[in-house]
Design a protein around this nucleic acid. Structure first.
Lengths: 107, 107
DNA sequence: TTTATATATGATAAAATTTTCATATAATCA
DNA sequence: TGATTATATGAAAATTTTATCATATATAAA
């Protein structure tokens, strides 16, 4: 049985979902705009938006056949705090051998 | 190639590692104490501590054959902010169908 | 100087999460 | 009404992350 902390990190600490939150930081966007901005697969984006909605990290409103998403205020503040921390520790994170870089198989 | 955000979440948004940070919130502890308090396997704990150290989220000092760990101030503040957010959204997190609960196979 | 305790390391196994695939629904337009 | 666009759903495949296993090192005690 997962506790609230596990669930929180599963929702929040995900690349695509956090990217969505960052994009919504400054202005509301519909699904299609998010898809084009972030380059996420439509189907993944939809799953991710639903998750963020369920958790009340974001809100929706309908506009014709579009759905327009916006971030909630408290979540926006948390995004900012996390973003700040990442900036401050970036150099160490990149050197951590436990957080393994992908094999760089590029030619 | 992982970016700083991916690396940050891999380090920070992990059950065992976040538990360690929470335990260190109020006082410094050696590895053995953390192990007993948290019930983490010795070998996992050691991997996790190394990761947190690499990222500079915690510090160590030697004391005889013990190693005593303490949390860094900025990280402690972030832990508090995250903890607050989790409390506020716990009820929604638990109802999110995307964040799937484990099958509860208990008798 | 051998033994015991505390902690660390690296490779693989196991489990969890994320992506993909196939398809559905809902609203608008022709 | 039928076609088209925008978005959602659920199951299975693919990938990533975490845990386990076997073993190493370092300090202290006997």
């Amino acid at each position: 049985m997962k506790n609230a902390t596990d669930l929180f990190f599963e929702a929040f600490a995900n690349k695509n979902r956090f990217d969505i939150l960052m994009r919504l930081r400054d202005k509301e966007l519909c699904a299609g705009e998010l898809q084009r901005n972030l380059g996420i697969e439509q189907t993944n984006l939809s799953h991710d938006l639903k998750c963020l909605l369920n958790c009340k990290f974001i809100n929706v409103r309908k506009d014709g056949r579009r759905r327009v998403y916006s971030i909630n205020h408290e979540t926006k503040e948390l995004v900012d705090e996390v973003t700040g921390h990442i900036k401050g520790y970036e150099m160490y994170l990149k050197k951590c051998g436990i957080l393994k870089e992908e094999e760089n198989g590029r030619i």
